[in-house]
Amino acid sequence: MIAHAIVFYIFSLIAIVSAIMVTVSKNTVNSVFFLILDFISISCLFIMIGAEFLGMIMLIVYVGAVAVLFLFVVMMLNVAQQKNEWFNSSGRSSHIPVGLLVSIIIFFELIIVIGGWKYKPDLLDSIAIEINTDLTNTQSLGSVIYTDYIHLFQLSGMVLLVAMIGAIVLTFRQRSGVKRQSYFKQISRDRKDGIELVDVENNKGVKIDV
């Protein structure tokens, strides 16, 4: 039990410190690396409370895919230049009210959630589905999501699909003059339309690429 507690505190310490470092560190790429460390320690915490499926999905989705895209975007920015613009420009004060608003809202939400912790035993009575402790949590999650809440699940899937299509439409640019390879066209070419034999007259030459 003591070993369990020690490991828990190690992981949560890493999680909190790296969460702070995400906001504090000046290099954006380092921030993303700390974010990844944060995700990993959170997923370790998930595994420690026995939610192994959630922990692994956290690793696969957030660390394996989302954070890679973050890193991808951040590395593309010219970091040094951006840093100077951000910290030296006089316009930076205009970001403070927005940031303050968001952080105040998050702070109150956290207070409500942590305050609600006190009523945790009562909350457990009000859940709609009985928790079956015999099943592994992959099985029980599957049965809850795909049988009891299938409509909500499909609905959220549709929302994500719409968001995805929206993102594609917003960023799609039709460029002209791009040479594309069509496998079908390439394979169906034969000698007849690939080669033309021309008798070249002396001192005249041929016109190519018509």
């Binding site: 790429v29 692994m56 895919a65 890193l71």
Partner: peptide, 25 residues
């Protein structure tokens, strides 16, 4: 012999990209 063995394998192999990105950057 963990319950989510295949997910663990998948997660670890998807983390493998970090070594390369970190080295390259």
């Amino acid at each position: 012999d963990i319950n989510v063995g295949i997910l663990y394998l998948f997660a670890v192999s998807s983390l493998g990209v970090y070594g390369i990105i970190m080295g390259g950057w």
